[in-house]
Computed example of a mutant assay.
Amino acid sequence: MGSLILGLIAWIIPTVNIMRRNKRGNNHSIPTLLSMGSCAVALWFQLSFNIYLIEINDYTALLDTVSTLKWVAAILIFVTISLNVISIVLNSKVLSRSFR
């Protein structure tokens, strides 16, 4: 449950940052770091859960979930990085216009 919430947070932060791009003087590096950090912690939670399944010898549950986890992790990383790059690019354009 924690990894799902942190994954959503990793997507919500840059989305809010993109929607607030017209605000001048905002520091956009901290939300980007928070987004990437929550993505990393969400992935760590999933790895910890897999280790837990190994420790309790529940290999059937591990085999059932590991292939899905691979794709979900890839989607989480790709979307998080994409949203943060879009946020950085759009906000850098706003900042460059404000200094003209």
Rank of each mutant, 00 (worst) to 15 (best):
N17Q: 13
P31N: 13
L33H: 11
I54T: 15
I5C: 09
N84E: 09
V66F: 15
N57G: 05
T68P: 10
V89H: 03
A74C: 09
M36N: 11
I12T: 12
L62H: 03
L90W: 05
L69E: 04
S35T: 10
S35Q: 14
N57L: 10
I18K: 02
E55S: 15
S48R: 15
L53H: 03
S35Y: 14
L43M: 10
I5W: 12
M1I: 01
L8H: 00
Y52E: 11
N22F: 04
N84C: 15
S87A: 15
T60G: 10
I13E: 10
A74D: 05
R97N: 05
I56G: 00
N26F: 02
N91C: 08
N17R: 13
E55W: 15
L53M: 04
I13Q: 07
A10S: 14
I30Q: 03
G2R: 07
S35I: 04
S35A: 15
L95A: 13
N22T: 00
L43D: 02
W44A: 04
N91R: 12
V79Y: 00
L33R: 10
A61P: 03
T65M: 09
I51Y: 06
L53N: 01
D64P: 00
E55D: 15
N17C: 12
I54W: 15
I54P: 15
Q46E: 13
D58P: 04
N22A: 02
S38T: 12
G7A: 01
T80W: 03
V94P: 02
W11P: 02
N26D: 13
V85D: 06
M1F: 10
L90C: 03
N91M: 09
L53A: 01
F49K: 06
L33Y: 14
S38K: 03
G2D: 07
I30S: 01
L53Y: 05
L34C: 12
L62W: 08
R21G: 11
L34W: 10
R24H: 04
S48V: 09
A42Y: 14
V16Q: 09
L90I: 07
L33W: 14
T68L: 13
Y52W: 13
E55V: 14
T80Q: 08
L47Y: 13
T15K: 00
N22G: 12
D58A: 07
I13L: 12
S87I: 02
S38M: 08
N50R: 10
Q46C: 10
S67W: 15
S29K: 09
W11E: 08
I9E: 05
M1W: 07
L53T: 03
K23D: 04
S29N: 10
A42Q: 08
V16P: 09
R24E: 06
W44N: 00
V85E: 08
C39V: 04
N27Y: 09
L76G: 00
N26K: 13
M36W: 05
S3N: 04
V94F: 14
F78V: 11
N91T: 07
A61W: 05
P14Q: 08
R24D: 04
T65D: 04
S82Y: 14
Q46F: 05
S29V: 09
G37R: 05
N91E: 06
P14W: 12
A40T: 08
I13T: 11
R21D: 08
V85Y: 11
G2E: 08
S98T: 11
L63F: 13
N26M: 11
A40L: 11
K93C: 08
L76N: 00
L47K: 09
S3R: 00
R100K: 04
